[in-house]
Structure formats: C-alpha cells, structure tokens
Simulated assay, not measured.
Amino acid sequence: MCLIVAAWRAHPGYPLIVAANRDEHFPRPTAPAHWWPDTPEVFAGRDLVARGTWLGVTRCGRFAALTNYRDPRLRRADAPSRGLLVRECLESHRPADEALHGIAARSPEYAPFNLLAADANGFGIHESATATTRMLEPGIHALSNHLLGTPWPKLRQAKTRFEAALQAPEHEDDFLRLLRDDTPAADADLPETGVGMEWERLLSSVFVRAPGYGTRSSTLLRMRADDTVDFIEWSWDAAGQPAGEVRERFALA
C-alpha cells in the first residue's frame, strides 16, 4: 500500500474503517481480493510473485496492511518481499501487539516498511525505519510512505476528506472519491524523499498516475459493531480506468 487512512474506534457503529490505495508497477502479476485456498481464513488480494499481500482481513476480524518507506538510499534488492509480513500477521494467532513485536525483531532483514495490525483488542504499528512498535489510541490515523502521521499534502487532504466521510460511513462513494483524487501537490509543498522532483510530483496525489506505475487498487474495509465486515476492492488499469471490482460481506467468526 501507499496510502492508508484508518478510523480505529472513532465511530460508535464501526470499530474499524480503512480506506487505502495500493500503488505498484502494472506488469507485476496480482490477484484481486479473494478467500485464499491455502489459508481459508484470509481474505486479501495477492502478489503472485512472492505470494504475500499488501492488505487483508481474516474471518475472526484480524486486519493487517503495509506501506513501503520511501528512501532510495535504503533499497535492498536482496531482501525478501515485505508482503510476506502482512501474510504472517494475518495468519498469526497471537494478539496484534505480540505479532508486531515478533515481526519487529526481524525487520532489519527487510527493506524499510510500516506495518499496521489490528484485532478486537488493539490497533498498532511497527515502523522499521525507527525500530518503533506501539499501539495506537482511538482516532483517525493516516499513513503513506514515511512515518505515521507525516504531514505530506496528500495525507492531510485524505485525512480531512476521510473525517467528512466518517459522518455517514454507510455511503461508500465519499470514500471512493477521496481515494480517486489525482490532484498533485504544489511544488512548494512536495516532500524531498530522494526520488527527484518529477517523481515527487507524480507520487504527491492520493491516486497516482505515472508511466508504468500507479494506483492499481483501492480498498474500503468497514468492520461493523454487529460483527459484520464489508470489504470492497476497486481495481484500476494503467490509464486509471476501472478494471474490476470485488465485494464481500461476511460475519465474524
């Protein structure tokens, strides 16, 4: 993932709501969200190269998602896929905080990342760039390719629109509009992450359009207080046009 906004215990009818965009190279083979045949309790999209995922949920209500930490100086071509960490977290039967701490002990083996994990009792994050693991307070949390809450323009914009959408969370169109916003930030507001000005511009919008790379899917996950889960995944082609849609509603085990 490259942008995640999550409301943790911030709405009485929805313990967790997540709106997220996955940015990736378009040639990389990917399966849309589905119940995994080899791990039947997991519902997630799947990277068909390394067999991991970027975001998923389980029948018992465990959630996990990951963003890369953008710093070209820290790239590691020999590192294992970070999507395997999301898979590990979803398949774990330990509490979310214990699962995060277990992964944190091995995070130096991977290129930098941020891993979010939640279960019925807690919502937490491991930021490998700072070797920090912590549980989060109820509220709205926004994450992109830096540390949690870093005030990049697209994060500020997405969080503001997410807060507005949270007033009527049953209306999915408000969340979809925020995830589809491809307005770039002004040059004066661009972060400096080491990728050059042209790419800073291309990556500065919530919905990314770039040569051979961009937002390939958008996800809306809503866990309800009545123990039902709504999962919607919209897929996009290289031109940013609709390429598929998955909808799943299930009761928590």
Rank of each mutant, 00 (worst) to 15 (best):
R201A: 06
S128A: 14
W54P: 01
D181H: 04
E200A: 08
W152K: 05
R247W: 10
A65Q: 13
E127N: 03
A186K: 14
D47E: 01
A225D: 11
I103S: 04
E98S: 11
F175N: 02
A6F: 04
G240A: 04
L3S: 07
D181K: 00
F123K: 07
V42F: 09
A225W: 04
R94C: 10
D182R: 11
D71W: 03
M1H: 08
L147E: 11
C60T: 14
Y110F: 15
D189A: 14
I140Q: 00
A186W: 00
D119M: 09
T228A: 05
L220W: 03
P242W: 06
A239Q: 15
E163W: 02
A20R: 11
N114K: 07
I140N: 00
L203C: 03
S107C: 06
E24V: 13
W236P: 00
D119G: 05
P108H: 11
F113T: 08
S107G: 07
E198I: 15
P138C: 05
G52R: 03
P211Y: 14
G102F: 07
F250C: 06
A19G: 05
G124H: 04
H146M: 01
L3N: 07
Y14H: 14
R216H: 08
G149A: 09
R156V: 13
H126R: 12
H11G: 05
